[in-house]
């Protein structure tokens, strides 16, 4: 199932440098409510889904539907009132569960707001150091992570995080999580308030991580980017699952979308309009589409 060794370090041969092989995740009947002063707002109600190692999941739904909460529960920052999160096939009471949880990376919305160190390199090193890894391993992880997000350490390593542009800060914050070599990467609205150029760059990075084998969960409002990046679909509304399963353009996909009240991905709609959907599955990216249409 997973190509990682028991100590959690990636040993997969197909991994790119710095990318760890994926981990599976299964949520069973997750229930959670915010302890608001007066009216408790149910944030998650009986959320159940399964994501195999190395697959990517689009977590869709309107604002306030519970997407962020679900990510935090999976990471273990919030303890669910009901249900369990199994990681790598391990239930929470299993030995090794805590180690597995440390291999879950969570990239918050606007993660550049957490940058604090006096140099880019130090900021990225914070996470792996907190994991207690030996210093040479930390440095290697930092270099690989910075390389991966397109901020070569020899150029950016010594710069002050606050002196970077907004797009560079976003990528640096991502590197800070990647340096911990997550095998399950949770991203909360990673494209929000990014300029288009950085948005494209981020998509390229996520494609690289995905093909490197990391399990991805992408909470986003952008149906087209989700379609380009994700195999599976989970739609939340009011804290409940309204659709879940593999995300393809066929009958199952249509049913999912109807249940989730989602706009269809642009390329799916285009393929239908062009009458090509019967012959072949719609392309995932504009580049694939262009190749088919040239």
């Amino acid at each position: 199932m997973s190509a990682a060794s028991s100590d959690g370090r990636a040993v997969s041969s197909r991994s790119a440098p710095g990318i760890a092989a994926g981990m599976s995740v299964r949520c069973d009947g997750i229930g959670f409510s915010y302890a608001e002063a007066h009216t408790p707002i149910p944030a998650l109600r009986s959320v159940t889904f399964e994501l195999a190692a190395g697959r990517s999941l689009a977590l869709l739904g309107p604002s306030g539907s519970g997407k962020s909460t679900l990510l935090q529960v999976i990471k273990g920052l919030d303890t669910p009132e009901a249900g369990t999160v199994a990681l790598d096939g391990l239930r929470p009471d299993a030995p090794g569960y805590d180690a597995a949880r440390r291999e879950v990376g969570l990239v918050f919305q606007t993660p550049e707001l957490q940058l604090f160190a006096t140099s880019a390199r130090e900021d990225v090193a914070f996470g792996p150091r907190r994991l207690g890894r030996p210093e040479e391993e930390v440095q290697a992880a930092v270099e690989e992570a910075m390389e991966l997000v397109g901020l070569p350490p020899e150029v950016f390593g010594g710069r002050h995080p606050y002196a970077l542009s907004g797009g560079e800060q976003r990528r640096l914050a991502l590197a800070g999580v990647l340096a911990m070599r997550p095998r399950l990467l949770l991203l909360d609205e990673p494209f929000v308030s990014l300029d288009p150029a950085t948005r494209r760059e981020l998509v390229r990075i996520l494609v690289r991580l995905r093909s490197g084998g990391v399990t991805l969960v992408l909470a986003t409002h952008d149906v087209d980017l989700a379609w380009a990046l994700c195999d599976d679909l989970l739609v939340l509304d009011g804290g409940r699952v309204v659709a879940s399963g593999p995300w393809d353009a066929g009958e199952a996909g249509r049913a999912l979308r109807a249940a989730g009240r989602l706009r269809e991905p642009f390329l799916v709609e285009l393929w239908r309009r062009l009458g090509r959907d019967a012959a072949a599955a719609p392309p995932r990216t504009a580049a694939e589409a262009a190749e088919a249409l040239r």
Partner: peptide, 10 residues
């Protein structure tokens, strides 16, 4: 939010 994010980084 920041505390949670840093907790997520260990």
């Amino acid at each position: 939010q920041i505390m949670r994010a840093q907790r997520a980084r260990g």
